[in-house]
Amino acid sequence: MKSGRVTKALSNTYLALILALLYMPIILVVIFSFSGNSVFSFSKGLTLQSYIMMFRSVKLVNALKNTLIIGGITSVVSTILGSISAIGIYYLKPRWQKITLSINQLPMINSEIVMAVALMIFFITLRIPQGYPRLLLGHISFCTPYVVLSILPRLSRMDPNLYEAALDLGASPFTALFKIIIPYIMPAVLSGFVMAFTISIDDFIITQLNKGETGIETLATCIWEDMRVGGLEPYWFAVSSIIFVLVLLAVLLGNYTKNTREVNQE
């Protein structure tokens, strides 16, 4: 029993070490967000300059706006397209289902750079207008597969009798679809939506290669341009720190509310 406790202590030390490794760079970014620099030095002393500059930067506001617009439209379109298709794919004949799913897998297993250059050649050859049209089509094409894959398992867990029962009770196929199937898969639709949004706002390579010369930048490409042209603007440290604190709070609060709920249930 005692050796079990030692193992557990050692295990937890290991977890702590890996967490420390993962968080060290981020914590340093948070600390130096108060330095007004984008390098790790307090040459300007302790200052809130980075945070103030954040609100003054037109570039940052535009990048944020573009990221949210692209992420928003992409996730809505991907979710609708993906949900409808998942239902369709589920009822395809096995052979066709297999083929469709392989195509669906392509953007997920393929390397991002190949997807990006393929889309680039495609858009340029077909003269699709630069800017939003290219970016939205690109984002939708690599986000939708994740929505489909998040919904399919839920569909296969559904009791087919539910649907049959609705038909027997006189519901039309479409009523049954909207009253039975869609409400049942709703949780998976929502998680697919969140996934599509996250993947879209996180994308760098496909956006970078397909943004063209319209000057449209998302947060990721904006950071990259900034890094290449003479050092990062210090306000990115402030932005990252804020995102980090918000995400961490969300995770910890989620845990707290879950725990209190469990306690209440007991």
Binding site: L81, G82, I84, S85, I87, G88, I89, Y90, Y91, L92, T100, I103, T144, V148, P173, L177
Partner: peptide, 9 residues
């Protein structure tokens, strides 16, 4: 229902 997969395909 099968038809729903065609636009995506």
């Amino acid at each position: 229902r099968k038809v729903f997969s065609y636009p995506y395909l």
